[in-house]
């Protein structure tokens, strides 16, 4: 049986990627609100996912306020597909 991707097999990273797979884009506060995790923890995990090439981070300004936007990459989509497929195999779904 195929091993589960260790980058995705973490509750917070998986939660972030699950949000991204259902959205075109999300903002940093949106991720914090939905995951109910601390801003620091979310920030660290976003950096890990970005370094793995699973998501893109765009920093911009809106109404003179900094805005961080996250989008899933093609590599991230493929990884999530493989992860959910492997998960279903493990759970015999």
């Amino acid at each position: 049986m195929k091993e589960l991707d260790p980058i995705l097999h973490s509750r917070l990273r998986l939660a972030i990627m699950s949000l991204l797979i259902t959205h075109d884009e999300v903002t940093f506060p949106f991720v914090v609100e939905k995951t109910e995790a601390s801003r620091g923890n979310v920030s660290v995990q976003i950096t890990n996912l970005e370094e793995a090439g699973y998501l893109d981070v765009t920093k911009s300004f809106e109404d003179k306020k900094p805005k961080t936007t996250l989008t899933i990459t093609k590599k991230g989509e493929t990884a999530m597909e493989a992860y959910t497929k492997a998960l279903k195999e493990y759970l015999n779904l």
Binding site: L4, R11, A15, S18, I21, T22, T35, E36, T84, L91
Partner: peptide, 23 residues
């Protein structure tokens, strides 16, 4: 939501929870 180690069943729940929250 707790963010420690978790098993495969919980992983599925996390995905489901996030997808549902984004409806």
């Amino acid at each position: 939501m707790e963010y420690g180690n978790f098993d495969k069943k919980e992983a599925l729940n996390v995905i489901e929870e996030m997808v549902n929250s984004s409806r």
